[in-house]
Design a protein around this nucleic acid. Structure first.
Lengths: 245, 245
DNA sequence: CACCAGAGTATGGTCTGACCATACTGAGGC
DNA sequence: GCCTCAGTATGGTCAGACCATACTCTGGTG
C-alpha cells in the first residue's frame, strides 16, 4: 500500500467501507455492488481482504454472490446491512426461548409433510425411475438410525443417546422427501428438537412405544402408503408429547 | 487437489469440516484449533479458503483469532457452534442451487400450515383471549402488506416491488400462526422465495389474480375459516406456479 | 544459580498473480 | 434472421511470498 502502516485491520476496514458505501450510495435491495477487483483497487487493499469481507456479508445475508457475467452476476444486495444480522441470528439466539408447543408444532408440520411426500415417491417408484439414488440413500440412513435406536435402548442407555438416533431418523425421512430445502430446515432445527426430546424421553422412561412408531413410519414409507405414514408420524409425536394433543 | 473436480464449494466444505471437527474432537470453549496452514493441508484446500471459513466463524463468535505464538495464539474456540445457526447459514449460502420445485414444495408446506393455524386461532378468539396482541400485530402487518401490493402494481411497477410486498404478506401470515419457529424459518427463506417469485411474476405479467388470492387468504383467516384459508393458499401458489401443479 | 538479551520460530494478516468455472456479449458464418 | 463460437467479465480457488506479533529457547553474564 502507499502508506507505511495499516497493514493489519484491513479486513475490518473493508467491511466498514463496504457497508458505508451501501448506505451512502443509497443502494437498494437487488442492486449490484462493484466487482471484487474494483472494490480492492478502490479501497486500496488486496482482493483477498475484499473477499473475506464479502464472504462475511454473504453469511450475514447482506449480499448474495453469483459467478458469471451479466446483470445478475456479482454481489447482489439482498438485505440492508442494519437489518441483516437479524433474520438468521435472531432465530438461533431466540431458539432457547421457544416453547415446546412451538417446536412440536413445527415438527408436526415438517414431519407429516416429509413422511407423506417420501411415501408418495416410493409409491410412484414402482413405475418410472422416480426415486433417485440420493433418496434411497436417505431411506437407508433412516433404516440404520432406526436400528441403532432399537439396539441401544435396552435399559441403561441414556436418553440423550436414544434421542440422537431418533433425530437422525427423522432428519433422514425429511431427506427422503427429496426436498433439500425441507431437509435443511429440519437439520437446522436439530438442536431445538433435541432439547425438548430429551425431556420428553426422560419423562416417559420407556421408549418401547416410540421405537414401535419408528417401525410403522418406516414401513409405511417403504410401502408407499402416504396416509398411513402421516398417521404414524402424528401418533409418534402424540406418544412423545401427550400433553400437547 | 488429489481429485479431478470439486474446485468450487471449497469454502462451504471447509466450514462444515471445521464444525464437524469441533464436534468430533470434543473441543471445549477455550481450546485451540489447528493452525490455518495445518487445516488447509488436512482438508486439502488452500489457506485462503480456510481463512474465509475461519473469518466467518469469527464474526459468528464461534472462534477468536489471535496472532503470535503460544497457547493463546491461533483460533480459540469461544463458543460452541450452535449447529442450528450454522446449518441455517449453510442453507442460505447454498440456496441458489435449489430448484423451483423444492422452494414451492416448502412454501406449500409452511404456508398452508400457517394459514390454517392462524385461522384456527382467530376462530377460537371469539371466546377466550386466545389471540395475543403479537398475532394481531401480525395480522395488521399482513393487511398493510396486502394493501401496499395492491396499490402499487398498476402497470409500470416492477415485479421486484410487487414481490417484496407479496413476501411481506406471506411472512406476516406465518407470524400470525403464533409459532415463532415457523415464522423464523419463513423469514430465513425470504431470499430463496424472492428469486423464484420474481421469475414467476415476470412470466405471468399480470398480478390481478395474485392480488385477489391475497384478499381471499386474508379474509379467510380473519373469518376463522381454516379450510378456506388452506384452499386459498393452495390456489394462490397454483396461480403463481401453474407448471408445478 | 538467577537473570536477561537476542535469535529462532509458529502463528495470524496481508498481498500478488495466476488459473479455473461460469455465463453473458457480440462478431461472424450460414 | 438465426445459430455458433470466440471473447470477456465475474466470482472461486490456489500457491507462494512477506510482514507483524509474540512466545520459546539459547547462551552469556552477574
Amino acid at each position: 500500500m502507499a502508506d507505511k502502516e495499516r497493514r493489519t485491520r484491513a479486513f475490518e476496514e473493508v467491511l466498514l467501507q463496504i457497508e458505508r458505501r451501501i448506505e451512502d450510495d443509497g443502494l437498494r435491495v437487488g442492486d449490484r455492488l462493484p466487482g471484487e477487483r474494483n472494490l480492492a483497487e478502490e479501497l486500496q487493499v488486496s482482493r483477498s481482504s475484499v473477499r473475506e469481507a464479502l464472504r462475511v456479508l454473504e453469511t450475514l445475508g447482506v449480499v448474495s454472490s453469483q459467478a458469471g457475467r451479466g446483470p445478475d452476476a456479482g454481489a447482489i444486495l439482498t438485505s440492508r446491512p442494519d437489518s441483516a444480522l437479524s433474520d438468521l441470528l435472531r432465530l438461533s439466539l431466540g431458539m432457547s426461548s421457544l416453547s415446546t408447543r412451538e417446536v412440536i408444532g413445527t415438527r408436526l408440520m415438517i414431519e407429516r409433510w416429509s413422511a407423506e411426500t417420501a411415501a408418495r415417491r416410493t409409491g410412484a417408484a414402482a413405475r418410472p425411475g422416480s426415486v433417485t439414488p440420493i433418496e434411497m440413500d436417505a431411506l437407508d440412513a433412516a433404516t440404520r438410525a432406526m436400528e441403532a435406536a432399537t439396539r441401544g435402548m435396552d435399559a441403561a442407555e441414556s436418553a440423550a443417546e436414544f434421542v440422537r438416533h431418533d433425530i437422525a431418523f427423522h432428519v433422514a425421512i425429511a431427506e427422503a422427501s427429496g426436498n433439500r430445502l425441507v431437509a435443511a430446515v429440519m437439520r437446522a432445527l436439530r438442536d431445538a428438537m433435541r432439547r425438548h426430546a430429551i425431556d420428553a424421553v426422560e419423562r416417559l422412561g420407556d421408549t418401547t412405544a416410540l421405537r414401535e412408531d419408528h417401525r410403522r413410519i418406516h414401513a409405511a414409507i417403504l410401502a408407499g402408503d402416504a396416509p398411513a405414514a402421516v398417521e404414524a408420524v402424528s401418533a409418534h409425536l402424540a406418544h412423545a408429547y401427550p400433553e400437547h394433543f
